[in-house]
């Protein structure tokens, strides 16, 4: 079997002849696939601006998988679609990893229905809770159980997979518990949910704003009313000015303090990530909501001051990103 292997080696080697050399300076980023499009966009432009001196690599191990690597000191920064959890804080502490918690962008979780659905004009958080809470399993099966006046039609639920940060945030914001009912159509691929809701008049589902905006002809977004306030439709503006609540959420970048102290190129990368000059445009381009300008400034200041720790104590919802940045971390 010797000759075929040699032959294969030669063939593969020939196929990849001219290749540029690896760059010396490397920024290693991993983490959530929700944050990935933003980091990819920033990395692409940052590499251009650095003229090849610095290279950025981005993985998609997921928020949890990303924190596992980050807290072992394997990555310089990690993306997260939810705040760091207590056990991850403990793991980082155990390994002596200090981190700077920074907002990367905003996302508006959008509740969507089929365009042919003519009975829903808005929904309250309580109505959503009635639909999704664990007690609803096997009992809430019809639209007329949600509100008087809704038609006698079956209720069909579509949602993010239970492993995702999107699911965690929705459940926390709407139900205030750790889990929802189990009898809904779940998918890790939001495009599957788009197809599901777009092809069923009785369907209702939720996912990130970008998936709604790319499929506006096929879906209708539901305005949400929280704590008796007027219903608010999800949009870039209402997420940015924190009026679309409680489903607006920041997504995060956690930066290793040691990397920031020892590697100037990691700091340059994060400064680029948070610059009002580049970030808002890049974030918008990939379908997310940029932070308010003031939040970018506050985040820059936090990075410069190397303020470590998290401002979250357990999960919180409905807090504006500026308010979060103004807090003193533990």
């Amino acid at each position: 079997m010797k000759s075929p292997i040699h032959f294969a080696t030669a063939a593969f080697a020939a196929a990849i002849a001219a290749t540029p050399l690896m760059a010396a300076e490397l920024v290693k980023v991993d983490g959530s696939s929700t944050v990935f499009p933003v980091t990819e966009a920033v990395a692409e432009e940052f590499q251009k601006a650095e003229k090849g001196q610095t290279m950025v690599t981005v993985g998609i191990s997921g928020t949890g998988g990303g924190f596992k690597k980050f807290c072992r000191g394997e990555t310089d920064a990690t993306g997260a679609s939810r705040p760091i959890k207590a056990e991850e804080v403990a793991l980082c502490k155990e390994n002596g990893i200090e981190y700077i918690e920074l907002p990367a962008a905003l996302d508006a979780l959008t509740v969507v229905i089929n365009p042919k659905n003519d009975w829903v004009d808005f929904l309250t958080v309580d109505e959503l809770k009635t639909m999704w809470e664990p007690a609803a399993q096997d009992t809430i099966k019809n639209w007329n159980q949600i509100r008087d006046g809704f038609p006698d039609r079956p209720l069909k639920l579509f949602g993010a997979g239970t492993d995702s940060g999107t699911y965690d945030y929705f459940v926390e914001a709407i139900i205030g518990e750790k889990s929802s009912r189990g009898d809904f159509t779940a998918s890790e691929d939001d495009n599957v949910l788009v197809q599901g809701v777009a092809s069923d008049v009785d369907a209702i589902g939720f996912f990130g704003l970008a998936y709604y905006e790319e499929n506006q002809g096929k879906l209708k977004a539901v305005p949400i009313s929280w704590k008796g306030a007027d219903p608010v439709s999800p949009s870039v503006e209402t997420a940015k000015n924190a009026t679309y609540q409680p489903l607006s959420r920041p997504i995060f970048m956690y930066v290793n303090k040691k990397s920031a102290d020892e590697k100037p190129h990691v700091v340059r990368f994060m400064e680029f990530y948070l610059s009002t000059e580049h970030a808002p445009e890049l974030v918008k381009e990939v379908g997310y909501v940029p932070l308010p300008d003031k939040a970018y400034e506050m985040a820059q200041a936090k990075l410069a001051a190397r303020t470590t720790g998290t401002v979250f104590e357990g999960a919180e919802v409905g807090v504006g990103v500026e308010e979060l940045l103004a807090r003193t971390p533990k």
Partner: peptide, 18 residues
């Protein structure tokens, strides 16, 4: 391959084998 830490965004190539 994702589990062992393959990347998704990488804008340089490995050094050539020849």
């Amino acid at each position: 391959v994702i589990t062992i830490g393959a990347l998704t965004f990488i804008a340089f190539l490995p050094p050539p084998p020849v």
